[in-house]
Design a protein around this nucleic acid. Structure first.
Lengths: 123, 123, 123, 123
DNA sequence: GTGGTCTAGACCACG
DNA sequence: GTGGTCTAGACCACT
């Protein structure tokens, strides 16, 4: 179930990518599960197939899904096993910049860790 | 000292904003300190004055700097005292999506908190 | 319908902002209504797209409009619900300085209220 | 007694003009009273004489003060007697734009008149 | 000297 | 098609 927000300013294809990954993380989607075709998904969430295709492309690039031409698209078997160094750096940079914001807002290290812990619990 | 990366894809004006805020957080820049004029900064980092002006405007909108037309621009006295609810939500959303990535990579809550703690220390 | 005056000395982008807000107040523009694209508006009123973009950015910052990159720009659903304290102070200061002018011109409190009432009716 | 704010963004010379007119309105300064020379005033409030000169020039243009070369500058005898039509229009335009803002913030006519009345009392 | 505004034209990401 | 970003260069108001 994908829900698109047109207010967030976040690109639609990114929202799709994030939410599929979220479902995988929550194990609502498990390795081997099929996901809807580009056209079906596009109809469901009311966007153009182009946008969904771009999202699927990105997910495949990240190794989250696999497509077998003529059969369909499904969740990949091995996820997160390769521990991409580049990807980790990117995550760290993003988080770091948010930590700067929090510290400017007056958050101590403890405040910050408590916040992150709370967010992690809420996943 | 501002360093621009043309490879990151991040808008130049955003990089300026982030780095100035970083300097303020580290107290390399303290309230009342003047920062280089739009033209000077533009020359230093090799972009057009317009781009620097856009960064300064954003910083002023966020209350980080103040500008006196005809005189110059300096770090504001009170920063982060208002604790904007909308801003905090934005930070939380950004961090949350990174936590999803980390969990997909196999990070437990403890791993995550350790990572964030390490990043906070490194600021 | 936006009309630009090049004699008033008021920045063009501010005139656009003011007039859009006026249309919204008069309900000529209602929540959800799309407004012309940056390029179209620029052509209509004979300025560069940059100037219109600056106006739209300011309107979005104020929460009057919302923009979906690649789709267009429309009037936001909830306007003025947050009642910004800083904004109200700014309005009060501007009005106060005009009241000084009026009192110097000989306006009593009653004269002034009558004038303001007349202006409010004329909106 | 003139107090300059470097935070308001309002031009310094305008602040001087406004405050002198305020003092005249409050009758702290009465027709015939001398005001400090450009140089003296500049020293008192810590700005360049150029800025004060510009303010005095504007005040003289508006008929609020008069300068007799070699003698000094003083408050004019007849103020506000001419009721400049152009000036009144300018005031009305400024107030009108603030009324738009207030109405967008949800102010009814009564709310607005109460606010203006309160501001008038506070003069 | 300073910042603020505007023009003219370009490239890119998104849908 | 849309908006977002950037460059190059100009003019103006303020100090």
């Amino acid at each position: 179930m994908i829900i698109i927000s047109y207010q967030s300013g976040q690109p639609i294809y990114e929202q799709i990518v994030e939410q599929i990954k979220f479902h995988v993380m929550k194990e609502y989607l498990k390795p081997g599960d099929f996901i809807p075709s580009v056209r079906k998904m596009a109809l469901e969430i009311g966007v153009t197939p182009n946008t969904v295709a771009k999202a699927y492309q990105e997910l495949e690039r990240q190794g989250v899904i696999q497509t077998i031409p003529g059969k369909g698209t499904f969740i990949a078997e091995k996820i997160g096993s390769h521990m991409d160094k580049v990807q980790l750096e990117k995550i760290e940079n993003t988080v770091r910049s948010q930590l700067v914001e929090l510290r400017l807002l007056g958050y101590s290290k403890e405040d910050t860790l408590k916040l992150v812990g709370r967010l992690y619990e809420g996943l």
